[in-house]
Amino acid sequence: MKARRISLTVNGEAVACEVPVRLNLVDFLRHELGLTGSHVGCEQGACGACTVLLDGQTVRGCLVLAVQADGATVETIEGAGFDDLLADLRAAFHRLNALQCGFCTPGMLLTAQELLVGNPNPSRAEIREYLSGNFCRCTGYQAIVDAVEAVAVARAS
């Protein structure tokens, strides 16, 4: 199987290793680096469970090959947690019960964080729109929207 050596920064740490060319980024993070906070739900970019930040932007970890991340900066739910905004989102998700099984939650948090960075005062419709590529099977989405809205409102005041 063809392999390539890659080096990248993951959650602030330099990583260099050889990976099969066909390995996608989320499988690399999960199984090679043990960063199991990003999940696999569909392998076709439809569910958002594998969302990670690649050079600061949300991407589907299942739609990027690990070799394409050579030289890049990757942040996952495990590492992206030192920022106030993400901490606020976590607290609001907890307080408002915006998760049940938690499988979609890392992707929801990273996507919601990106939304609020770009649009600090989104309407509920805008929140739903931005999260519309992240599947949650447990909640009715409403608590998630409530949590994102609550953080936006609290940070605005």
């Binding site: 199984h31 199991t36 495990e78 019960n97 939650t105």
Partner: peptide, 22 residues
């Protein structure tokens, strides 16, 4: 009352079956 277990999941520290390697 919010759930204790949720805190771990929010940190990405859940442990689902595929997260386990033996």
């Amino acid at each position: 009352v919010p759930r204790d277990r949720a805190k771990r999941l929010l940190l990405g520290r859940g442990r689902f079956v595929d997260d386990i390697s033996l």
